[in-house]
């Protein structure tokens, strides 16, 4: 069964974390509206603590305590592949088993071997995650998200705390996977260069409480985005961020 990419309509009125143990209540998101069309690679770009991860958790259905709505196109619930900031692999299952655990009932188990090959982990399939390097664990988490043949892919700063070369390789790998297995992608990052390298469109989020300040569409195909262009786009992104924030 081929994945049917899904569009999303977001209408988050308010998301609050209740006060507890000496911390007062925090409003993470307020009045965030956005429409992400099917097959778009959309980057959510904003300062730390602007509710980006919270937003992904809301979309993923992990967090239900908010007011507003998340609507997916189509009749059935979308299959969502989630790549978290930390890999969140099950330490007591091998790399292969980590992928097998999330497979849907009736899915072809051969997909696991193919994906492990694609992310370069075929040799390490029977390792426990404790034996993987940081980059390998990220690749395993990426493969797991694709194992369910997702309609929607959520990525929460998946390449932070990797060295530059490893992060670049993983970005290329992500683009390759998305090109061969189309899905709508929501990519959270606070790295401007990363955002302009990967995205079709960038949504600029404000500092908490998060809302959409502005958006930047990048028409130029990814393979033509060279260093000078990326520099120019980063500057443009920074300018827009300043222009629309009150400070």
């Amino acid at each position: 069964m081929a994945a049917v990419s899904t569009g999303i309509t977001l209408c988050i009125e308010e998301k609050q974390y209740p006060a507890e143990r000496g911390h007062s209540a925090v409003t993470a998101i307020k009045g965030l509206d956005a429409r992400i069309p099917p097959n778009e690679f959309c980057a959510l770009f904003g300062p730390s603590g602007c509710g980006k991860s919270t937003l992904l958790n809301i979309i993923a259905g992990i967090d239900h305590s908010f007011s507003g709505s998340v609507r997916f196109d189509g009749d059935r619930a979308p299959r969502i592949g989630y790549v978290f900031q930390a890999p969140r692999l099950l330490p007591w299952r091998t790399v292969r088993q980590n992928l097998e655990v999330v497979l849907r009932r009736g899915a072809d188990p051969a997909v696991v071997q193919v994906l492990l090959g694609d992310v370069g982990l075929a040799e390490s399939a029977d390792f426990y995650p404790s034996r993987l390097s940081g980059g390998m664990a990220r690749r395993a988490a990426l493969a797991r998200a694709f194992a369910i043949n997702p309609d929607l892919l959520l990525l929460d700063e998946p390449f932070v705390s990797l060295d530059v070369a490893a992060a670049d390789r993983l970005r290329a790998l992500l683009l390759h996977l998305v090109a061969t297995r189309p899905a709508t992608v929501l990519f959270v990052t606070h790295d401007a260069a990363e955002a302009v390298m990967l995205a079709d469109r960038i949504l600029l989020l404000s500092a908490a409480p998060g809302r959409v300040l502005d958006e930047m569409r990048i028409q130029i195909p990814r393979e033509q985005r060279d260093q000078p262009l990326i520099g120019k786009l980063v500057a443009e992104l920074a300018r827009r961020g300043r222009g629309s924030s009150p400070t």
């Binding site: 992990i62 978290f84 969140r88 655990v101």
Partner: peptide, 19 residues
């Protein structure tokens, strides 16, 4: 975090318990 992972990947109750 692992509980959140299980929920976002829609693991059923039995798989969540077992794995």
């Amino acid at each position: 975090d692992l509980a959140g992972m299980a929920r976002s990947f829609r693991l059923d109750a039995w798989r969540t318990l077992r794995h």
